[in-house]
Design a protein around this nucleic acid. Structure first.
Lengths: 347, 347
DNA sequence: TTTAGCACTTAACTTAATGGAGTGCTAACA
DNA sequence: TGTTAGCACTCCATTAAGTTAAGTGCTAAA
C-alpha cells in the first residue's frame, strides 16, 4: 500500500493534470511555477525520483520529463481525484436532450450515448436497464395481406418488438389465431427469460395440440422474442475515436473500429451492471485492442426496474475528474427520465 | 479527341496495370520486359514522353517513373478496358448470398452492399428500386394497450413500415377507427408520392370531418409514410476504407467516414438512376472529400418496378476491369432476385 | 532537508553525403 | 524516318554527423 506525503501527492496531481492537458512529458522546472508550494526544481526532482521509484511516473527516455504510469493514474483516480461539479451549461444540455418525448426506452438510451459522447468528445456506450425485469404483456399476429404477417410482442415496460414474416403456404392466418390465444393464456405476465426457457422445453409439446406443425410458428415467436430479450449496447461518438486515438496504423484503427461495431460483443469488454463507478486504465481492460485507452463504467439504478450501464472510452490521458463528473450527472438524469417513462406504463 | 497508336495504347494499358497492382511509378525498363512487343527502353521513353505531352501520364518528380493521370485513367476506362469475366467462384458467392429467403427488399439490397464490398475490398452503396413505383396497399393501427398504438403501412411491393406511438390522452383507439377507414377508402392504391402530396393539401381538410383534432393522427400517419417513402443508400464495407485510404491524417479520415454515415445525403454524391455504368475518377466526383478516389455507379433495372443503384468507392488506382465485371454480375443477379421477390406479391 | 551548480543524456531537427532508379537528349544506325 | 545505345543529369531515399534544447542525477554547500 502506497502512501504519499502531501507534497508528493501535489506533484503527482500536477503531473497528471499537465500531461492530460498538454500531452507532453512534464519537467521539474515547469512544475516549480505551478505548484502552490515554494520549492526549488531540485527538490521537485528529488520527489519525482521517489515517485518514479514507486512506479507512479515514468520517463519516456533517460533524460525526459515524466508522464504518469498506469499505476500513477490508478493512484490518482483512487486517492486524489475529486469528481468535477458539472457545469450548469452542460447540465442544461443533458436535461434538454432528455427532456423531449420518447416512444421507446431504446431511444432514450441511444440518445444518452450520443449526448455523453458529445460532451466528453470520447466514445460512449449505454445499456438499458436489464431485461430480466421485463415481463411479456402481449403478443399479436397481424395479417398484412399478401402472405405477410407481422408479429408484435409487448412487454410491461412498454417495449415493443416486431418482425414481419412471409408465411409459408401451409400456414394461414386463421390457423394461427388459437395459437395466439394459447400464448396469451399461458405466457402473459411471465418474465421474458422464463418464456425463453419454456420455449426450449414445454411449449413445443403443448403447442402440438393446437397446431399440426408448430415449427413455423415457433420460429416466428422465437425470433421476435429473442429480439426483445437481447441486450445490446448503444455506441455514441464512434467518430471521436479518430480524434483521440493513439494508433497511427490504419490497420489497427480498423480492428478497433470493428470492435465497436460488434455491439453484441461489447458485454465481454464492458461487463455487467455492478459497481457504482469503475475506472479501468490501460491494460486493466481485458481486451488487447484497448490497452492504450481508459474505460470508465457506471451503473445507474432505476429502482425496481433494474440497473443499466453507461460507459466512456477515451485516452488514458483524459480529464478523469470532468469525465466522472459528467457521468455522475448522467447517472442521475437518465435514471430519472427512465423512471418517468416507466411510470407511464405502470398506471 | 485523343487517338493513340496501338503501341501507345499498349504502353498506357501496361502502366495502368502495373501501377494499380504494385502502387509504384512505372519506368521504361520494367515495361520493356512486360510488353508483348520488342522495343528498347529508349523507344518506350519516347512514347512515354508523347503520352505525357497528351496529359495521360505524369511524373511524381522530374526523374521518376510515370503514373496515370486522371485523364489517363479516363482514356483507359473509355477506350482500353474490357470488363473482366466474373470468376465462377465469385459468381457462386453472389448467387449463394442472394439465394436465401428474405422478408424485406431492404434486406436484399443491404446484403448486396455487403457482399459486393467483400468481393471488391472496397466500400459499396446500394439503393433499392425507386419508390415512385410503390403504391399504398394497406394501413393499420394496432392498439397495444397502455397508451400505445402501432401504425403499420404496407405497399404493393410488400414493403412494411411501422412505428409505435404513445397516444395523447385525448385520442383513443376507438376514435381512430373511422380514420383508418377513411384512409382505406381514399388513399389505397395511390403511389406513395401522391399520398405524400395529398397529405400536405386536401387530407387535413377532409379529415377534419371525421376527427375533431386531426393533428395528432396526421403526425402519426405522416411519420410512417415518410419513413416508407424515404430513399436511402445502404453502405457496405465502410471498414475497408481503412485499407485503401490515401489519407494519413486522422482528421481527414474522420470527415470521410462521417460522409459515409450520412446515408440520407449520399444521393448528392452518387446521383440517381441513369446510365448503365458510370465511372467517375478523382475530381470528376462532385465532392472534395472524394477527390482522391474513384466512384463507379451502375443502374440496375427491375422491369416495371423501376431502377436502383449499386456503386463502388475505391482508390483511383483500382483494378477497374475486375470491379466493373463484378458490378455487371451484380446488376443481373440483384435484378433477378428482386423480380422473383416482387413476383411473390403480384400474385 | 533544501538548494545551486554542473556534467551528462536524449529527442528532434538540420545539414551533408551517397547510391539507385529513371529521365531527356544526342548521335549513330537500319 | 523510326529505333537504339550511351551518357549526363535529376530527384528521392537513406545514412551519417552535428547542433540545440529540455531535462535529469549527483555533489557539495547552506
Amino acid at each position: 500500500m502506497i502512501t504519499l506525503t502531501e507534497r508528493q501527492s501535489l506533484i503527482l496531481k500536477a503531473i497528471v493534470r499537465d500531461y492530460t492537458e498538454g500531452g507532453n512529458p512534464v519537467g521539474s522546472k515547469s512544475l516549480v511555477q505551478e505548484l502552490p508550494i515554494k520549492v526549488s526544481s531540485a527538490t521537485i526532482r528529488n520527489e519525482m525520483a521517489h515517485l518514479e521509484a514507486l512506479g507512479l511516473i515514468v520517463k519516456t527516455h533517460l533524460s525526459s520529463g515524466r508522464i504518469p504510469s498506469i499505476k500513477g493514474y490508478r493512484y490518482y483516480v483512487d486517492h486524489i481525484l475529486k469528481p468535477e461539479k458539472v457545469d450548469s451549461k452542460d447540465l442544461k444540455v443533458i436535461q434538454h436532450s432528455l427532456g423531449g418525448e420518447f416512444h421507446k426506452i431504446d431511444e432514450i438510451v441511444a440518445q444518452s450515448a450520443d449526448i455523453l459522447s458529445q460532451l466528453t468528445s470520447y466514445t460512449t456506450f449505454t445499456l438499458r436497464p436489464e431485461l430480466k425485469h421485463s415481463r411479456l404483456s402481449g403478443f399479436r399476429l397481424v395479417p398484412l395481406g399478401n402472405h405477410q404477417v407481422m408479429a408484435i410482442l409487448v412487454t410491461n415496460n412498454g417495449d415493443v418488438e416486431n418482425q414481419t414474416f412471409t408465411i409459408p403456404n401451409d400456414l394461414t392466418g386463421d390457423e394461427l389465431e388459437p395459437v395466439v390465444r394459447f400464448i396469451d393464456d399461458q405466457l402473459i405476465g411471465l418474465p421474458l427469460q422464463d418464456v425463453l426457457a419454456k420455449l426450449q422445453q414445454e411449449i413445443p409439446l403443448k403447442l402440438s395440440h393446437y397446431l399440426q406443425n408448430p415449427d413455423g410458428f415457433l420460429d416466428i415467436f422465437g425470433s421476435v422474442l429473442s429480439k426483445a430479450a437481447s441486450e445490446r449496447f448503444y455506441v455514441g461518438g464512434k467518430l471521436n475515436l479518430f480524434d483521440y486515438t493513439t494508433k497511427q496504423n490504419p490497420q489497427e484503427m480498423r480492428s478497433l473500429y470493428s470492435l465497436l461495431d460488434q455491439t453484441d460483443n461489447l458485454a465481454n469488454v464492458i461487463g455487467t451492471p455492478g459497481q457504482h463507478i469503475q475506472v479501468r486504465i490501460g491494460n486493466e481492460i481485458t481486451n488487447d485492442l484497448l490497452k492504450d485507452y481508459s474505460l470508465i463504467t457506471a451503473t445507474y439504478d432505476v429502482d425496481q426496474h433494474g440497473q443499466g450501464i453507461i460507459a466512456v472510452l477515451g485516452p488514458t490521458a483524459m480529464p478523469y475528474s470532468r469525465t466522472i463528473g459528467l457521468m455522475g450527472a448522467f447517472q442521475r438524469e437518465l435514471a430519472r427520465k427512465l423512471l418517468e417513462y416507466y411510470r407511464y406504463f405502470d398506471e
